[in-house]
Write a protein that binds this DNA or RNA. Structure first.
Lengths: 268, 268
DNA sequence: GCAAAAGTGTTATGTCTACACCCATGA
DNA sequence: TCATGGGTGTAGACATAACACTTTTGC
């Protein structure tokens, strides 16, 4: 079979070039399913997935991939024509999150770049993967501006995930491992919580991420220590609860950064 | 000024695409300058740089960038024509190291992807950065197959580095920070050492990377512990030295991986 | 009073650091 | 005998984990 001559498009180069995309692993925690009695002993870490639709009527059949499958939100990085600026990789990730899931991520960090030939059946596509932390309360699953379908899926052990498109399962796995490592020595857990939270909430976040129960008394001591260092501020108390009211705290990012510069080392 | 019409090349696409490169931060340690009396108290971590030459006579003047400047070794990822496979990102990194510096890296790991518009004056170039550890004894600085000039530069504090092309200084800085973090909880230091090494050599590697002196007695204890766990094997002794002979050790990668699977946690 | 969860006290255990000290070797 | 560096012992500081116990609230 003779290969057909490719059509001449507007953008032409001396050497072949790959497409470059960004894909985002968005983590959240749903407090609604996690307040006791909870289905799992340590809360519900969840990830946002998008159901791939018919990408566009203009896309020829043979160029569609994984239609109907679930995938990480993401898309092509905008590269400007000629000498204009285009967008940075991080900006592309933010844009795709807004477009596909209506999400504004407070925490976004690069994870890894996946570029094996063959990872995308449509051709050579190199994907820069990011992971994001959001307060999923604020982002109830909803479709983006186009006809895509967004849904939160639980990452609790034993909860089944749908098969993912491309190599997105590998990306998700790496992101989860990275998050589990990161949460131990950097205060990223707060980005999953509302501005005001209790020791209980914070512990739940850690249990959800690390997927193991933590001793509430020792955890309480850690919070007290952070309070002493001025990194957590008391901003009120719970009301009308059938137990001793919890203190409400706020994470003081500025105080943390100052302390970090002065050699303070966040742990667990 | 009216923009000139771009020439029609063979590879054309519907949307503009970026070039994708790999760049490698290659770390080594030179034992020759580090054996006492040493110029610095903690040895010499060094990095391999390439002097950019005239890239090719065929490259038009306005497309050359940073000619004569020092840069990290790297180059374009090969993307195959049509539906062939091309090379993986890691393979591209290995290939560039071989071509530009004649180096076979034992340890190579992805660092980060740099893709800000404007980072390369020639257009939109996205670079996947890797860092590598090599036994620099085995790789005396020498030019690669083409006319490029390769040189080891010291990273000891206060040693001046030449100005680097593109954003390579930012890449180098991130790589150094990553290496310093990694070396504390994963046994990567051994990839900088010859197969047989002494406690002294190993400590020097750690001092060079962390850029601070370590207590030789406590360090000795760490080595003994690794020996007890079967991760270091005694393979001989020094001869004809003006002091008590050091034991020679070999790192047993297989034993380490087995231990790691069983929950062993490497530290410092 | 009961249930629920916050928070404090305490103890055993382990780890890290600094340093004193002894050992082995070649010159 | 000296210089050089390997290796062991050890005491204090500090961190961690486990768990008993007290406190505070709504019902």
């Amino acid at each position: 079979m003779k290969p057909t001559e490719p059509p001449i498009y507007k953008y032409s180069y001396k050497f072949p070039r790959p497409s470059v995309t960004v894909d985002c692993v968005v983590f959240g925690i749903d407090f609604r399913v996690s307040t006791p009695p909870r289905p799992t002993p340590y809360g519900e870490l969840q990830v946002l997935l998008i159901q791939r639709g018919v990408e566009s009527e203009a896309v020829p059949e043979e160029e569609r991939a994984f239609v109907g499958a679930w995938a990480l939100p993401g898309g092509f990085v905008e590269v400007s024509d000629g000498f204009g600026q285009g967008e940075s990789l991080e900006a592309a990730a933010h844009r795709e999150l807004a477009e596909e899931a209506g999400i504004k991520a407070d925490y976004l960090e690069q994870l890894n770049t996946f570029g094996d030939p063959g990872r995308d059946p449509r051709g050579r596509v190199i994907s820069v993967a990011y992971y994001a932390l959001v307060r999923s309360m604020d982002h109830v699953a909803k479709a983006g501006s186009d006809a895509k379908h967004a849904e939160w899926y639980s990452l609790a052990p034993r909860m089944p995930l749908p098969a993912l498109a491309f190599d997105h399962w590998a990306i998700l796995e790496m992101a989860l491992r990275r998050l589990q490592a990161k949460v131990r020595y950097e205060p990223v857990g707060f980005d999953l919580l509302p501005a005001k939270f209790t020791t209980f909430d914070l512990r739940m976040v850690y249990e959800a991420i690390l997927q193991q129960p933590l001793e509430h008394r020792n955890f309480s001591r850690i919070v007290q220590r952070l309070k002493g260092d001025g990194i957590l501020l008391t901003v009120g108390q719970e009301r009308n609860v059938p137990h001793r009211p919890r203190n409400l705290y706020r994470f003081d990012k500025r105080a943390y950064k100052k302390a970090a510069r002065e050699g303070f080392h966040f742990e667990l």
